[in-house]
Design a protein around this nucleic acid. Sequence first.
DNA 1: TCAATAGTGTCTGTTAGACATTATGGA
DNA 2: TCCATAATGTCTAACAGACACTATTGA
Lengths: 193, 193
Amino acid sequence: MLVVKSAAGKPVLPFVWSVDGEALEQTARELAKDITGHGIPWLAPGVAIASKKHPADAALSVPFVGVMSATMPTPGGSAWYPVDVLPALAPRQKAMAEGALETLRLHMDVAPVAFRLLPPVFTLSELQQAYELLLGRLLHKASFRRALQAAYLAEPTDEWRSEGRGRPAQLFKFSPRKRRGGHRSVRFDLIGH
Amino acid sequence: MLVVKSAAGKPVLPFVWSVDGEALEQTARELAKDITGHGIPWLAPGVAIASKKHPADAALSVPFVGVMSATMPTPGGSAWYPVDVLPALAPRQKAMAEGALETLRLHMDVAPVAFRLLPPVFTLSELQQAYELLLGRLLHKASFRRALQAAYLAEPTDEWRSEGRGRPAQLFKFSPRKRRGGHRSVRFDLIGH
DNA sequence: TCAATAGTGTCTGTTAGACATTATGGA
DNA sequence: TCCATAATGTCTAACAGACACTATTGA
């Protein structure tokens, strides 16, 4: 998670003051670009919260969660944190950060978010690690690869990468779903007919 | 979905003007209670949208989705609509209504929302209809009941109800999950370890 | 009786998770 | 050669969906 330093030297989440009636998502995209210097490939709105005693008297805060490549260079005055080890944020910011993760996980089953963390070409182990990081739990290797193949989400390239010791891993690239069969889902609330 | 009539006689979603910095969810609960005369058992925040040309100059609209018993009497000056047959709303309100449904469906797998539509005691057919209404698709009867039993979400009573013709149906009541085994999930993004 | 709805039992194809095995590099 | 990691194959238990059947009421 990207954290910047406030004027007082305390860690705070990046933010902008509201511009009256401006499109929120557009504003969030511009903020992300201003800070990192790059566009953000995936962004989702979070849950607005009221801010009675906000320092600048803003009535509402509207958080956004974005995901961008982990290989992105860190811009000056900011730092990336693992999502499971956040620095000491103000209570409301902490709530927003946790809510952001929640929002992200709610979206993971309908949007290939994890791919956005990776460079254009990646190994399946890296992809699995990205999923595990975002979901906050370990996955089963064989099952992960089977499901991935069934979903046609990753496309193999003919390149391989040797990562120190061990057998080299084949490189894959993201293959946006072409509606080739569609989702399967077996959750209790999603039993198909 | 509950729709009220505006001063001009047009259908609009129920709303309140923001009270500066007031807790949003509390405000939404009070609105629901004011209109229906009852508390609302389940409520979730939706995605805030900017309202540049809002009639009253509000900068942001924060929608909430609630679910309450379908047996609730209709308050004066308002009307319930099936979620799949909405009246002609203003574009922004229409977007919010559709977004609300989306939010609702995203929450259905983590909260037993469908139960909130039903009276304290209900038949399994009614429960399945509630799920189908909220999910927008048909479910498989046998599978639905199997999954329901596995989840320990409904508890049978010793009462039965005869609904005109056909075999009487056993009545069930909601049985808040007691962490008895926990969720199972087989979605691609949720493969367990 | 028939029609209509509730509820159950059985079968089959699919698949998650476990486990083992092979493949291929570096030390 | 050993070790570490990648990738694949096989097995089993579980389960979704299909289908058919029984159960129980009113007409």
